[in-house]
Structure formats: structure tokens, C-alpha cells
């Protein structure tokens, strides 16, 4: 009977460790790593990822590639991401802080290189009952709703060499990320 108790304890512990290793530890380690690499940049600020940080988070992309990042925090309200992208290939992916993909768009899908995307907290169940008809119209279009108040939006722009990287970085750096006008 005593052995059965310890057997059940071992199996329960194994299940907890397994779930933690898959669901919680990766997100925690990743966000801590991202925090360390972008330590001096405030939330809701758009910036071009430096090459050194880029090679750690995106080792499978050549150093010429440009990554633009906005770590958002929706605690104090919606955020507007004003994108300014160069001609050619690009993608935008919005992730939750746990690395879960919330939204994607590419140059082929959007057809334009300048746009604004609003990021907001998803409404709770009670809020859904209070939605007015005019709110439904306002919520259509370029809007992403997240259940997680923190996350990051990531622009990817490939380029073949460092010279091309400079010009593409310059265009992308005209993008911005900040509190939405009310």
C-alpha cells in the first residue's frame, strides 16, 4: 500500500514536470531571454533589432535580415502600430508573450506597404453583452484582440547583404508603436 502511494506520487510528479517543461518553462525562458536582449527599450516602442540580438533569437536567418519589434503592453489601453515597410517581401506576426501566434499578414496578403494595426485586449464575456452596434463597425478592419495583455509584434524584411539592410532598416524604422488615440 505504501509503495502504491509513492508510485502514484512519482507518476503525478512526472506529469507536473512534463506539463511544466512543455507549457510554462519555454515561455518563461523565452520571455526572459527577450527581456535581456531588449533591456533598454521601453514597452510600446518600435525598434529595429540589433544584429547581435537578432543572431541569438533568429539564428536561421542571415545577418542581413531586418527584424522590427514592438513589445506591447495593453494594460493601459489599446496600442496602434503604424507600419512603414519597404517594397518587396515582408511579414508581420503578432505573438502573445508565450510565443503563440495571434495574427499574421504579409506583403502579398495586404497589397500595401503602409498601414495601421490596432492591438487591444479581447473583451470579457460580460463585455460582449454590452457591445453596441457602432462598436461592431469600429471593430472591423485592421484590429487584433488578445487575451494576453503583453506580447510582441514582429516585422520580418529579408535582404541579401548589410548594405541593403541599411536602406531597408531606414524605411522600416519610420514605423511606430504607441498608445492609440482615444
Amino acid at each position: 500500500m505504501r509503495n502504491l502511494y509513492w508510485f502514484i506520487t512519482a507518476v503525478t510528479l512526472a506529469v507536473i514536470v512534463h506539463i511544466s517543461t512543455i507549457l510554462f518553462a519555454p515561455s518563461f525562458l523565452f520571455y526572459r531571454n527577450l527581456d535581456r536582449l531588449t533591456n533598454d527599450v521601453a514597452d510600446n516602442t518600435f525598434f529595429i533589432l540589433p544584429v547581435e540580438a537578432q543572431s541569438k533569437i533568429f539564428p536561421e536567418y542571415p545577418p542581413g535580415t531586418v527584424f522590427g519589434l514592438c513589445r506591447f503592453n495593453l494594460a493601459s489601453g489599446p496600442i496602434t502600430l503604424d507600419a512603414n515597410l519597404p517594397d518587396g517581401i515582408w511579414t508581420l506576426t503578432v505573438y502573445s508573450r508565450f510565443g503563440k501566434t495571434l495574427y499574421t499578414v504579409s506583403d502579398e496578403q495586404s497589397g500595401i506597404d503602409k498601414f495601421s494595426l490596432q492591438l487591444a485586449m479581447a473583451p470579457g464575456i460580460l463585455d460582449l453583452f454590452a457591445v453596441k452596434e457602432e462598436d461592431l463597425v469600429a471593430s472591423s478592419g485592421w484590429k487584433v484582440q488578445s487575451t494576453d495583455e503583453r506580447g510582441f509584434a514582429l516585422f520580418w524584411v529579408p535582404s541579401t547583404d548589410r548594405a541593403m539592410r541599411e536602406s531597408r532598416s531606414e524605411t522600416l524604422s519610420k514605423s511606430s508603436c504607441g498608445k492609440a488615440a482615444t
Binding site: 523565452f30 533568429f58 501566434t101 499574421t104
Partner: peptide, 13 residues
């Protein structure tokens, strides 16, 4: 997703 995040990499969409 854990495969990418444990290595500190961003999982592609």
C-alpha cells in the same frame, strides 16, 4: 513551440 522557445528562438508562424 517548446522546441523553438526552449532554445530562445521565435517560432515562425
Amino acid at each position: 513551440r517548446a522546441h523553438f522557445l526552449l532554445e530562445g528562438r521565435v517560432p515562425p508562424a
